[in-house]
Structures are given as C-alpha cells and as structure tokens.
Write a protein that binds this DNA or RNA. Sequence first.
RNA 1: AGGCACGUAGCUCAGGGGGAGAGCGCUACCCUGACACGGUAGAAGUCGCGAGUUCAAAUCUCGCCGUGCCUACCA
Length: 901
Amino acid sequence: MSAHELPKGYEPEEVEKRWYAYWETEGLFAADDVSGKAPYSIVIPPPNVTGALHMGHAHNNTLQDILCRYHRMKGYNVLWMPGTDHAGIATQNVVEKELAKEGTDRHALGREGFIQRVWQWREEYGGLIIRQLRRLGASCDWERERFTMDEGLSKAVRTVFVALHEQGLIYRGNYIINWCPRCQTALSDIEVDHEDHNGHLYHVRYPFEEGDGGIIVATTRPETMLGDTAVAVNPNDERYQGREGNTVILPLMNRSIPIIFDEYVDMKFGTGALKITPAHDPHDFEIGRRHNLDSIKVIGGDGHMTEEAGRFQGKDRFECREEVIEALKEEGLLEKVEPYQHSVGHCYRCRNTVEPYLSKQWFVKVKPLAEQAIAAVERGDTRIIPDTWTKTYYEWMNNIKDWCISRQIWWGHRIPAWTCENCDELLVAMEAPAKCPACEGGTLAQETDVLDTWFSSALWPFSTMGWPEKTQTLETFYPTSVLVTGFDILFFWVARMMMMGLHFMDDVPFRDVYIHALVLDAEGKKMSKSKGNVIDPLFVIDQYGADAFRFTLAALAAQGRDIKLSEDRIEGYRHFINKLWNAARFALMHVSDFEPDVSAQDVRHFSLADRWILSRLNTLTETVTVGLDEYKFNDSANALYQFVWHEFCDWYLEIIKPVLYGRPGKTAGDDESGEMPEVGHYETTRFVLWSILNQTLRLLHPFIPFVAEEIWEKLPGTEGSIMKAEFPATSKEKHDPDAERIMQVLMGVVSGVRNIRGEMNVPPSLLVEVTVQSGDKEVRELIEQRRDTIVNLCKAKTLEVMPLGERPRSCATSVSGNAIMFVSLEGVIDFELELGRLNKEINKITKELNGIDKKLNNEDFLEKAPQEVVEKVREKGQKLTEKRSRLEENLEKVSQAAGNA
RNA sequence: AGGCACGUAGCUCAGGGGGAGAGCGCUACCCUGACACGGUAGAAGUCGCGAGUUCAAAUCUCGCCGUGCCUACCA
C-alpha cells in the first residue's frame, strides 16, 4: 500500500491505538503555562477512582474533547486538566466489600492499615477510568493528572478549612443530620434521595396522667415514640384549651411527658397532635429547642435500639417498629392504622434508609458564600447554558441550608482539628500543634472525622492548578473557560465550586457552565446495572470504533433534551464513518500524485460544480463553527453529515467522475480551455477535490479525531498531525449564490428525470432519450452547457434542449422550475402509471395553490405583510400555476394517447 | 405541593411567526470501476387538545390533557 492509498475497509482498532500513542508521545495534548496564545481551559469533572467508564462519562468527555480539539486548532493554548476524585464513601464501601470477601473488616485492620489498603487498591484499580478515557480519544494533558487526595490538593483542603473556620464560616455543633446506619456516617441533605413509600399512619393514644382520656397522636415511625419528650398541639386548637403544661403518660415507657403548645402543629393534619422526638426528627428538634425539651436517643448509629429504648434495646429499628405496634395493640392504645404514602430518605451510596440523627458534626455556613455565587451569575460573570438551569441554580442557592461536611468514615481528608484532652480546647490548624495553647500542655487528639468528598471537589478548579501557591498555571488558566457537566451534580459540585472559587480566588471558577443532558437507554430509562439496560462504552468502541461513537453522542446532543441511545443509532453513524472513508479512498485514488499549489489556481477553470461545492463548504464551515461556539454540537455534527454524504458524495463526486476518469472522445487530464468548462477542468477538479477533503477533515477532526487523522496523513500536501492544522475559517467571498442557484436548476432536471425513471419502472441499465423544454433562454443555455453532466447523472442516451413547443410522443413528463423534462418511453410506457403520477403531482400543487390564493385574496395580508413576503408568495403562486398547467397539458395528452392505444 | 422540560412521519428527534424537515425503519428497482456499512426513486404527519394575539401560528400567550425529571416535604 502506497503512502496515499487507503485499505478498502476502515479498521478503527489499530488506527486508534496508533494515533493516540502518537499524539501523546508527541506532546500534542500539553498545555503551556506561558504562551503567547490565548488560553482556553477546562477542568474535567473528576470521575470517582472506583468508577468504570459509563455512558455519562463518555458523553461528558466527548463534548469536552470536541471543545478542546476545536480550540487547539483555532490557535488557543488549551489546557484540559484531568484527574480523579477519591470518592470517600463510595471507595470505602468498595474496599470494605473486598475485605468482607476475605472474611475480615476494616476494624481488624485498624484505621492506618485500612487507609493503606485503600491506597493500595487505588494503585491497582484507580487508573482504570483514566485508561478508558484514552480509548475515547480524550486529549487531556495527562502530565498534569491530579487526585483529590494528592499532597497538593490535601494542602488546599486544609488551607480552606482553616480559613473558613477562622472566618466563622465553619462551625461544629449538635444537630439533626441525615445518618446512614449502613455506612455509619453523616450525610449532607443532597446526599439523601427521597422516594415515595407506601407506609402507614399509626394513631396512638397517650393517656392523660390525670383523669380519663388522652391525646391521640399520629406517626409513621412508631419506634421513635420511645424517645418522645412531649406532645405538641396548636395553641388555637379548641380541643386542647387549658391543657398546656398537663402531662400524658408515654405508653410502653411509662414516662410522664408534657403537653406543649406550638404554632408549628397543623390542627388539620392527622389527629392535630404531634408527638415530639427531638433526637430523631429535625422539626421535633427545633420544637424541642424552643421548649427546652430533653433529647433522648433511642436509635443508635448502627440502626439498632439503644438502652434508652428500654426493653427494645438491641432490636433493629424496623423490627422494633413491628414490636412497638404489637405492644401498643396489646395495651389497647393503637387507635387506628391507615395506609399512608410518604417519602423516605435513602443513602445515595448504599440505598439504605437514612435516619434523622442527632449528633455533633461540622458545618459550613453557606449563606454568605451563596450570596456571592448568586451575584456572580446575575452579573453575568458566569453563564449557565442552557439558560433554563439558571433558575434552578438560583432556586437552590436562595434556599440553601448549612452544609454538613463531616463524615464518620476513614477514607478522606481528615479534619484538621484537635482537642486538648486536658482542657477540652478545640484547635483548628494546618498542622498538628505541638501543645495546647490554652493550657500549655496535655495530649492533643485529632478529630477522627473526615470531610465530605465534595468539599475537596469544590476546590478542584484551583486546587488542581497549584493553589494555595501562586502558580503560573493559575495565572494563565484561571478562571477556566467552561465547565461541561450533567445537571445531576449542579448542586453537589457546580454550586459549591462557584462559592469556593469566588471566596478564595476572588473570581468565578468558569466563564461558562454547559449543562448537558443525560444518556438514557433506547426506551428513555436511566441506564442501571440492576435494570440490565446499560450499554458499555468500551464495548461500543470495540464494536463500532471510537469515532462512530463520539459522532453519535455529538449528533444526539441537542440542548435540553436527554439522549436515548441505542446501538442502532451508533451503527448508523458507523456507516457515516465508512462513507467518509470510502469517499476519501476515492479522492486519494485521484489526487495521490497531486501537488497542491494554491497559488497556481486559475479561477476561470472552476466548473459550476466546483464553485457550488466550495460555496456549500463555506456554509458548512459557518454552521460548524457557530454550533461549536454555542455548544450546539448536534447542529455541527448534522451539518457535517449532510454535507459529506449528500452534497459531497451524492452530487459532487458523481459529477466529477467523468472528469477524473475521462469520457468518450476525451481523455482524463485533457485541458479544456474556455470561460466555463462544461463539466470540469482536470487539474482544477483535482485541486477542488483535494481542498474540499482537506478542509472537511479539519472540520471533522474535533468530532472524529482518529479517522480524520488517518486520512489526513495519506492526503498529499499535509504536514504533521491534523491536531496542529488550522481550523477552517469562513469567508464571504467563498459564498457563491450564483453557483448555488444554477446548480439548483441542474439538480432539478436530473431529479425530475430520475423520478420518472423510478416511478415508471425504467430499468437502471436502460438509457433513455430525454428532452428538456424551457421558455427561459438562460435556462436552456445552462442545461446545454452542462449536458454531459446531466446525461451522465440521469443515464440518458440523448438529451435535446429546446424552447417550449410540441410535446414528444410516448413519454412521461416532469416539471422543475421552468424546465419540463420529457422522457421517451416508446413502447414501454404504462399510461395508467403515468396518469396516476401526474394526477398525484397536480393534486399536491393544487393544495398548495389553494393556500396561496387565499393569502393573495386577503387584503389585510397584501396591506400589512412585508412587501418581500407578498412578492415571494406571488412569485411562488405564479410558478406553481405554470407548473400545474404544464402538467395538466401533459395529463390531457397522455389520456388521449392512452385512449388511442 | 412547587418548579422545569417535553408532546412534530412507524421509531428517535431537529426546526421555531410567512414554502412541514432529517436519520433509522419501510416499499420498489439496482452489486454502475470509493462505498451493499452502497445507489436511485417512493410511501408516510390536522406539528397533543382548546382558546387568544396577529394580515399570517407547528412556531408567541393562556388554559387543559399526557409524559419525564428536579426540589421540598406535615407527624
């Protein structure tokens, strides 16, 4: 195989491996900290180290890669910062599961040993997703890869923690938080997923301590009653007037608890009386504080009942619920049970039911940070795209609650706080203090909690660039140009990066936030292992190639709409890659010995087709560029598809074949002089073919880098990687409306004849006699000049061009513009068929004309519509009327002929 | 409960005040020297329903119906 030939079929696997290695070793992904070029930077949403590449990653990173490759070609100094997240709970869970398989657990290893084990796990498996991103073609600057637990990033975390603490924005305290009894840790509010659950509402009577009767309370979680410290009613509730301060007996516990009045209680809900469990419900906690109630913890961190639960001690919380219900029944205190649907919180990592739980935790006071983050978006410092998400962002930021950042797990950034065992002084510092500054002595015990994973993620845009040092990287690349992410982590991550970036860098972390859609299965359901509907990106890449996959994702990435992905779609786009490949193969057969010399081109030699395709290419360039600039990846991809397949392959290549292969009486390469060569000039055609392919490949590269590079290498006159080539620019001069208009006429004639052939069942091998009539001299000349092309494209034996006149015998007709095509079907014409065809066409036109007439008879329209619109409608009406009358003439003739036959 | 999307050809969707579009699928014919992962042609839609604004509505506004998602949750 010579330097300029392509094998018959495209083999992605080998090509992808070869080019990726080349790009990487040549350092083509590397960003420069110092550069004369304008910076363009993106930080990758760091995938969890535990993760394997899934569709979401593939989609997200494909879009980022397209942007990076596009901007590199545009001449930017591009930094795509890669890395992974330590994913506290998720990773700890994975390693714990591994330990369980070995019949041991983390407690057996101890904290140090366990952490060591997790690092070991990361060494072994943590690089998986990074390797998989390479298969996709991701052009990250791998030299700069970061990990949220790196030394540098850990230092950033401690710095931020200490600063926020000093500023009074981090505090510690006893509050009700969300607790996962399985993971044995606190969770923030957004780490809890709420799901509707069919439960029951239990009505329980709490007898008055004095006198008969009692108060009936309603609850969905009867087991918490063991920790009740009051019953609350609304002060305006007539049923309970004068009861304030009275006491009731808490059933099963035989404890006397007060009746309190609180506005919070809704008289109409349930029984209008509310049992108060300050240790196990956030609202009860608030009420408890208002009324100075005790908090009694009856459920422990492990989800089992504590000793405070009396005889229920040690029971699992759900088991206890059943037993409490039984016990209440026995005592005759269970008044009623009704079915009740309510939502139940689940741990976003392990799906277990989350427990509201009173404990001492660390919090970030986010209101002041959120205010800055809101203002920055309002000022337009950061743009959220599509705009609809801006509202969601504000909504959340405006209702933000303090962020619980402490986690009772081992894997993560340990909170830099120490308590003096001597005097109980709490110290927050970068490093362990030597001694207690308060009492000058004592042993200092470090806080055992670690930080929420999202705490370190929040710093990602600047921690990865070396903060808190003042690095050149930060100087050059912060703020980043765009963050590309899914909406599912808008709150977890985007919002928090905004807050931290503004607070510590004094500038937003990114200029644009592009929020893309979710990738769903073909039925529109979320892909999940349990549903068994996941499509594995690696499988797709193996099967169809990375380029086909990437192109599919880009083509389906319409803003604001989820992607329903199926293998069929990917296969369809693989066909596109194949089409491109073969078009290139064809082109290379003819330009392999071609030495492009742009300056030598003589405009006079450009044929109509040349001018047309160059003009179309210019429009394509415009569309692709605008699409990429506006994050409308699908617009760009679809325009490329349309151009390559239907304009370049279907028309241009077919038109120039005779020029390249030579025609009867003329040899390929014959120099046809003249102002307007009828088909094309050999050398000019080769040049145009070459330059269309050249430019199209550059437009395609961001989307399908591998195959574009492979063809680029074979294309003569290209030097070095396509990654270093310039992205094509548009120019107004290349727009050639004349050529496009004339081409329309030509295409109309060809399509008309082909239509007759197809519908009249003329075998493709049969050459037909074609007559074209037109009252327009210019049109006749145009057709005459390009007769070779027309003859070739519609498989004509002869082509006669003449003014309007006598209709040839035994033929089928078609009208396009002001040209009428007659296809002679002597002996083979099926009159019935032709009559049907003409009638169909006439009906269609009549329908359209009805609408147009209606408009033209409407005085308001003529008066109020813009002149050009009226003119356009009028013209169209004329054209259609003319066309219809031609067809009607033909219809008449055909019926006559049919009658005679 | 509130919010946000979406409802256009059999399927997946683009478009977004003046001519209903694409891809896949389907039908017919064709291995024509880049490609059968191909070519040519064709069939197919009251643009969810109802009102309003406008000379003109698939497109803008409102209401309704349906679907999906998000947020918040009163025991």
